[in-house]
Design a protein around this nucleic acid. Structure first.
Lengths: 182, 182
DNA sequence: CCTACCGATCGGTAGG
DNA sequence: CCTACCGATCGGTAGG
C-alpha cells in the first residue's frame, strides 16, 4: 500500500464521521505523522484530496457491496442480493460514521462543483445498475422500486446514526421484502 | 421582528444550504451588515447560535407542516394530512437548501453535544406524534409504518437535492399511499 | 518528503 | 451596538 493509499484510508474514515469539509490538511497530516506540505504534495489542492477520498470510498463500496453479489444470476436473484448486501453494508459499519455517501451527498448537494458531480455520478451509476436488475426481474415500475429501496436504505442509515436504532436495519429489510418480486 | 429574529431567519437559510458549521459569525454578520461582535452578542457562542437556529427551524416546521393539519380529526385523517403536509413542505421548498433537519442531522449525527441532542429530540417528537396518529388509525405496526414514511420523505428530499429529480415527490406520495390505511 | 512562511478567516474578548 | 484586537487554524507556496 502506497503512502497515498494510507492517507486516503484515513481520509475516508474522517470524512464519514465529520464530513468532507472536516478533512483539513493540517489535521490529517498531524494524525498521520507527516508535514502539511508533505501530505499536500500528494494531492495538490484540498478539492483534489476530497475527490480522491470519494474515489477511494467508491472502491470500498464496490468491494463490500457489489463484488460479493456478482455470483448471483442477473435479474431477480441479483436484485435481491444487491438489496441484502446494501443493508448489510450499513449493519456491518463499513465506515465509522455510517454511510460515507449519504453524509457526503447531504454535505455537497448544495455546493456545485466537481465533488458534487462525482458523488452524483457514482450514486447514479449504482442506482441505474439496480434499476437494470429490476427490469430484468420483470418489475412493473423499476424506477419506483429503486426509489423506494434507496429511500429505505438511507432511512435505516439516518435512523441508526441519529437514534442508535439497531432495529432500523430489520425494518428496512422487512419493507424491502414486501417490494421485491417473488 | 427583533434583530435577533432577523439574524436567525438568515441563519436558518444559510444552514439549510451550507450546513450549521458553515454558519460562521463573520460571514453572517457581513451579510446582515453588522459587526461580528454585534452579532456575537446576541448569542454568546457559536454553539448557542446553532442551537437558536435549530429552534427557529423547529418553529418554521411547526407552522408549515403541523399547524395546517390540526383541523383534521385525529387518527387516519390526521395521519394522512401529516404525510401530505410533510411531502408538500419539501415540494414548496420551504428552506432554500432542502430539508433543514435532514442536512443538520447528517452533519451532526457523528458529533455528540447539545446541537445533536436538540436535533434528535425535535425529530423524535415529530416521529412519535405521527406514530400516535398511526396507532389511533388502527395501523398494525405503527413504528414500522413511521419508519417507512419517514424514509420515503427523506429519500425524496435526497433525490431532489442531488439529482434535481422533481418526480421524487410524486414517487414518495405514491409509496406512502400504499402504506396508509383506507 | 521537510521547514518556514504567506494572507485570510476562524471563534472569541476587551473596552467603550 | 462599535473598533480593535487575540491566538489558532485554514489552504496554499517557496525553496530546498
Amino acid at each position: 500500500m502506497s503512502r497515498r493509499d494510507a492517507i486516503l484510508e484515513r481520509a475516508v474514515e474522517v470524512a464519514s464521521e465529520e464530513g468532507l469539509e472536516g478533512l483539513t490538511i493540517g489535521r490529517l497530516s498531524s494524525e498521520l505523522g507527516l508535514s502539511k506540505s508533505g501530505l499536500f504534495g500528494h494531492f495538490g489542492s484540498k478539492e483534489e484530496l476530497q475527490l480522491a477520498a470519494v474515489d477511494a470510498a467508491n472502491v470500498i463500496f464496490f468491494d463490500e457491496v457489489i463484488k460479493p453479489t456478482l455470483k448471483e444470476p442477473e435479474g431477480a436473484p441479483r436484485l435481491r442480493a444487491y438489496c441484502e448486501s446494501w443493508v448489510g453494508y450499513l449493519e456491518r459499519k463499513v465506515f465509522a460514521g455510517g454511510c460515507f455517501f449519504a453524509a457526503a451527498a447531504a454535505e455537497f448537494d448544495g455546493r456545485p462543483g466537481p465533488v458534487r458531480d462525482k458523488l452524483r455520478d457514482g450514486q447514479g451509476l449504482w442506482l441505474s445498475e439496480i434499476t437494470k436488475q429490476a427490469k430484468l426481474a420483470g418489475v412493473k415500475d423499476p424506477d419506483q422500486l429503486v426509489f423506494e429501496v434507496s429511500s429505505l436504505v438511507q432511512g435505516a442509515n439516518a435512523a441508526y446514526q441519529l437514534f442508535e436504532d439497531e432495529q432500523a436495519f430489520t425494518r428496512a429489510r422487512q419493507a424491502i421484502a414486501r417490494l421485491l418480486p417473488g
